[in-house]
């Protein structure tokens, strides 16, 4: 029995990656849930919005790198991030003006907007591939680790190493800051409250003098910011590849629905529920169990419940279970 090593292994392979991935999903799900709450449809183009925002950031990062700009130990991408966000805001506002607004004026039903967002998905996906190609792009620089496994081993004398990647640290810290800012905005500012009012009761918001076009504009700006940050963090942590962002759509939708669509707190909780289910169910537990079990009982196999290729299946099964027991999601929906 060796609890200390087991805990370190658990932190290294399950907790830290789970928290980082959960933060990325939560940021993505927040964007989906805001659009659902305010514009009242599920935006299939959200994954590709993340890709486009991240792409703009990648391009700016390369430009800065070519100028020799850097943030020292931190990735240059953080410097480029505001430009990526600005690009995404411009893009979404342009899309809203040229595409979505027409259907709002026509009072089209939300499901029509879902179909429209499928068209936008195609276009965003095409534009991303057109500009940056379909391949993996590396844009990470700076210090790789906050704590590397080797340093940890020599410092503590344990067998098991603990590594904490810079990207994971940045992901977690950024996510906390962004979420805190978002909640402050929604609950404390006039504009944020008007968004919640509009989501709660559109007619009454109108009668109170809240301008729907302004609410929609602010929503797209926030969604662009969230999507770009989520996309860049995911790209830094894993890698930037346009197609993976499209695939993130399922876990992101699952997170938003598990938490209760339209509820920002739910989106965050959902992100972590989905991330931890994926990581724990597809992790090979042998590494941890060897420290906890007597040698005679040591497992032969990898003790992996499902192969990592089934991670999407895991998000989906969790979603199904939650919906069966609590049809409205963990938190009641609708209170953007």
């Amino acid at each position: 029995m060796d609890f200390l090593n087991a805990i370190v292994a658990l932190a290294n392979y399950v907790l830290i990656p789970g928290i980082a991935y959960g933060s990325q999903l939560a940021l993505g799900a927040l964007g989906v849930t805001l659009v659902y709450g305010i514009l009242r449809f599920s935006n299939f183009a959200h994954g590709d919005t993340m890709a486009l925002g991240a792409m703009a950031t990648v391009l700016m990062t390369w430009l800065f790198q070519s100028w020799g700009l850097s943030l020292g130990p931190l990735p240059t991408a953080l410097l480029a991030l505001p430009f990526g966000i600005l690009f995404a805001i411009g893009l979404l506002l342009f899309t809203d003006r040229t595409v979505y607004k027409f259907y709002r004026v026509k009072k089209a039903k939300p499901v029509i907007l879902v179909i429209v967002s499928l068209g936008i998905t195609f276009i965003y996906n095409g534009v991303t591939r057109f500009i940056i190609g379909a391949d993996d792009q590396n844009f990470f620089d700076g210090e790789r680790f906050i704590i590397s496994a080797r340093e940890f081993k020599t410092a503590t004398g344990l067998d098991e190493g603990l590594s904490f990647k810079t990207t994971q640290g940045i992901t977690i810290i950024t996510a906390i800051i962004v979420v805190a800012l978002l909640f402050w905005f929604l609950n404390r500012t006039r504009a944020g409250k008007s968004m919640r009012a509009y989501s709660d009761n559109e007619d009454l918001a109108l009668l109170s003098g809240i301008n729907p076009e302004r609410v929609v504009m602010i929503t797209w700006m926030i969604v662009a910011t969230l999507a770009t940050i989520a996309g860049v963090l995911y790209g830094l942590d894993k890698s930037f590849k346009p197609f993976t962002y499209f695939q993130l759509l399922l876990p992101i939708f699952a997170s938003a629905i598990v938490g209760g669509l339209g509820n920002p707190i739910g989106a965050i909780a959902g992100g972590f529920v989905i991330a931890f289910s994926e990581v724990t169910i597809t992790y090979a537990w042998k590494k941890i169990l060897v420290y906890l079990m007597p040698e005679s009982l040591e497992p032969n196999g990898l003790v992996q419940l499902l192969s990592t290729d089934y991670k999407f299946a895991v998000s989906f099964v969790i979603l199904l279970i939650v919906l069966l027991f609590k049809p409205t999601g963990l938190f009641k929906g609708q209170s953007v």
Partner: peptide, 21 residues
Amino acid sequence: IESAAHMRLLTMGMVLLLVLR
């Protein structure tokens, strides 16, 4: 020239949006 291969997604999106509009 290399990116021409990605035109098809763009076109499908445009066709869908134009018809819907």
